[in-house]
Amino acid sequence: MNVGEGETVLLDLLNTTPVVDDRPTDVLTGEWLRSHGASGRRLADVRRLRDDLQRVVRGGDPAVVLTQYLDGVTQTPAIVDGAVEWRLDADWAARVVLAWGELQASMPGRLRPCANGECHLFLLDRSRAGTARWCSMEVCGNRMKARRHYGRAKG
């Protein structure tokens, strides 16, 4: 899993608990694992990783809870085509946590929960100003703006 793939897998994993028909839903399945390079991983272990990451991104847990997923990770230098290349030895869960760490370093504060309190999804704000608030402008953004407008008109 390279850096770009890691970001995608991380965001996809965080977003496996959408609200559907006003009910929280878990869409993390064996098929999801296979399609995201996690074949052979236990579903319960990936759910635990997801839940820990969600709490950290929401600010409910300190990032140190993710340390357990980094046990045994090593990086070794090698000479490849006349240049030093670093080889990472890490399992799937560690690579997801490392992707989170890369985002924290390269885009601090840009990975965050949707500002709609009824939504359980997360967004990676790639906007220039860094002011994106909703997972989807079409769904959550419209809903929240309509709610605010209705509240002002009624009040």
Rank of each mutant, 00 (worst) to 15 (best):
4 G>W: 13
5 E>L: 08
7 E>W: 11
8 T>R: 14
8 T>F: 06
10 L>P: 03
11 L>D: 03
12 D>N: 07
12 D>L: 01
12 D>G: 03
13 L>K: 00
14 L>T: 01
14 L>C: 02
15 N>I: 01
15 N>H: 03
15 N>R: 00
16 T>G: 01
16 T>A: 01
16 T>M: 04
16 T>E: 03
17 T>Y: 02
20 V>I: 13
20 V>S: 11
22 D>I: 03
22 D>S: 12
23 R>G: 00
23 R>I: 05
24 P>D: 08
25 T>I: 03
26 D>K: 11
27 V>N: 07
29 T>E: 05
30 G>F: 08
31 E>N: 12
32 W>E: 08
33 L>P: 02
33 L>S: 06
34 R>W: 05
39 S>R: 15
39 S>F: 06
40 G>C: 13
40 G>F: 15
42 R>H: 12
43 L>D: 11
44 A>Q: 09
44 A>T: 10
45 D>R: 15
46 V>W: 04
46 V>F: 05
47 R>K: 14
47 R>F: 04
48 R>A: 15
49 L>C: 06
50 R>H: 08
50 R>L: 08
50 R>I: 06
53 L>D: 08
54 Q>K: 14
56 V>I: 10
57 V>A: 06
57 V>N: 05
58 R>V: 08
60 G>T: 12
60 G>I: 05
60 G>E: 15
61 D>L: 15
62 P>D: 15
62 P>E: 15
62 P>A: 15
63 A>R: 15
63 A>Y: 09
64 V>L: 14
64 V>P: 04
67 T>V: 14
68 Q>M: 14
72 G>E: 14
73 V>D: 05
74 T>I: 12
76 T>A: 04
77 P>D: 09
79 I>G: 03
81 D>N: 10
81 D>K: 08
84 V>N: 03
85 E>I: 02
86 W>F: 11
89 D>M: 07
90 A>I: 06
92 W>M: 04
95 R>H: 09
96 V>R: 04
96 V>I: 13
97 V>H: 12
97 V>M: 12
100 W>P: 04
103 L>N: 00
104 Q>G: 14
104 Q>D: 15
107 M>S: 11
107 M>I: 02
108 P>S: 07
108 P>R: 03
108 P>Y: 07
109 G>L: 13
111 L>C: 06
114 C>R: 00
115 A>K: 01
117 G>H: 04
117 G>I: 03
118 E>A: 09
118 E>G: 10
120 H>I: 00
120 H>D: 13
122 F>G: 01
123 L>E: 00
125 D>W: 06
126 R>Q: 08
127 S>L: 08
130 G>E: 07
131 T>H: 11
132 A>S: 13
133 R>Y: 03
134 W>Y: 10
134 W>M: 00
134 W>C: 02
136 S>L: 00
137 M>D: 14
139 V>K: 09
140 C>S: 05
141 G>I: 01
142 N>C: 07
142 N>T: 12
142 N>R: 11
143 R>H: 01
143 R>S: 05
143 R>Y: 01
144 M>A: 05
144 M>L: 10
145 K>A: 03
145 K>Y: 00
145 K>I: 05
147 R>S: 07
147 R>F: 03
148 R>M: 07
149 H>P: 08
151 G>Q: 15
151 G>N: 14
152 R>I: 00
152 R>S: 10
153 A>E: 08
155 G>I: 08
155 G>W: 06
